[in-house]
């Protein structure tokens, strides 16, 4: 099982701060495609992804238990 976190506009669009689904063995790109279709997310492509709080690339494969977060372009400061 994996915990998937959403922030900023993605959280508003999904309607949840996080969900739990099993995406072990899938790449980040595959999970983005899956979630974009499931929740009709237009801008998921422009989000970065973090696996276990470290930036990941679209080719990285998610393992069981990994926490996956989608990070829209940041605007702190």
């Amino acid at each position: 099982m994996n915990k998937i976190l959403f922030f900023a506009h993605l959280k508003d669009e999904v309607g949840e701060e996080n969900i739990r689904i099993d995406v072990a063995g899938r790449t980040v790109a595959e999970v983005k495609e899956l979630l974009a279709a499931e929740y009709n997310l237009q801008k998921l492509d422009s989000a970065m992804t973090a696996i276990n709080e470290e930036f990941a690339s679209n080719e990285d494969v998610i393992e069981a238990g990994d926490e996956v977060a989608f990070i829209p372009p940041v605007s702190g400061g």
């Binding site: 829209p72 940041v74 400061g77």
Partner: peptide, 24 residues
Amino acid sequence: RIKEIVPIWKKEHWEDGEEWIGDQ
């Protein structure tokens, strides 16, 4: 660097609406 890599977001609230700002 905060504006590049730290996962923090701001939502602007104006008199006529609101929006998550996504470009540093």
